[in-house]
Design a protein around this nucleic acid. Structure first.
Lengths: 187, 187
DNA sequence: GCTCATAGGCTAATGGCATTAGCCGATGAG
DNA sequence: CTCATCGGCTAATGCCATTAGCCTATGAGC
């Protein structure tokens, strides 16, 4: 017999993530979550403050999932190899969950709920650049460039913004090489 | 005395754009537009098919405005100078209307309403790269890289995604130099 | 085993918004 | 002068978020 999972904030976020995967962030609605949980809409307020908070929590989950994959990809590597692995992992995650990416907050540091998850992800990026020995502003600029590249590509690709998928792998390779070259100049 | 403008689709889009500038794309609502036009909400349906179409039209307007500024920036220039001007104009537009940028469609070619405006903007980018003499796929990759850079940066900056505005000009400069270097390798 | 606070679910009600249907007056072409 | 059309309006529907207030089971503490 089926034992219904007790509803917890984490479960609600799980369900929400499923809805986002299927219908996009705009499709994420308390009513839809409630239906999947076989519960009346107002009941959700016992687990989550409101729709805004739920969206923030979904953002945290996406951030954490990505960070975990990045960490795994970079572990045991350094230098260009690590950077390449990180950029590959970023794109891979977004391709695995295209709709999901729109739930990733661009400004996690501005939201108390997302702050630590956001900081953790940025830390991984900084750590990936560690072996280049960049100091102060140079490190910040390098991390920003990296973020611009991966986010720019991922956001356009996941939106279907590149006319044809034709040669997208090559384009991404070129972005990686371009970035690695810029790192060489930095050091 | 005040002569009230006759309501036309173009005027409705103007008003909508004002709302987007103030409250963001999520704040764009037919009810809000109607109020500013001093008209009942259903009246808008005489000028616009529905909220979705209005958003698409706003997207076209943004696309066109940007393209116009890009064209002006690039006119009479070539090579690195032209690319630098284009990238500068892109960032400048977004900084002039931060909220607005979220209304710029990432996949204009998929929407019949936005298709030509999107194609025109991409044409300007290709034209800016013309003097490098890139052929076939190389030209496509170069244009994609350019788009990734400008969009990635603009989208993060306009969302307030960079921790501190500290040194953002420098970061953007580095992105430009990085891109110019990648073009040198292409040729 | 009894009691009572609480966790977690529910119904009812409110208010915002999109959208549709159907009405109506002004206006301009013929 | 007439009439179709344009552009506005009101009424009604339905979806959604959110709040208020109710009710029950359960488990901690006695």
């Amino acid at each position: 017999m089926v034992v219904k999972k007790p509803l917890t904030p984490a479960v609600v976020v799980d369900v929400a993530l499923g809805i986002v995967d299927e219908h996009g962030l705009e499709g994420l609605t308390l009513a839809a979550v409630a239906q999947r949980c076989e519960v009346a809409t107002p009941s959700l307020y016992k687990h989550v403050a409101n729709l805004g908070e739920l969206k923030a929590l979904v953002g945290v989950r996406v951030l954490d999932d990505m960070t975990e994959r990045f960490t795994a990809a970079v572990l045991g590597r350094g230098g260009d190899e690590a950077v390449t692995a990180l950029m590959g992992a970023y794109r891979a995650y977004v391709n695995d969950h295209p709709k999901r990416y729109s739930a990733m907050p661009m400004d996690p540091l501005h939201d108390p709920i997302q702050k630590t998850a956001g900081a953790k992800q940025i830390d991984v990026m900084f750590a990936t650049l560690r072996s280049y020995g960049l100091e102060g502003p140079a490190a910040v600029h390098a991390a920003r460039r990296l973020r611009v590249l991966v986010h720019g590509f991922a956001s356009i690709e996941s939106a279907g913004g590149f006319g044809l998928p034709e040669g997208l792998d090559d384009t991404y390779d070129q972005l990686i090489q371009m970035y690695l070259a810029s790192l060489r100049k930095d050091t």
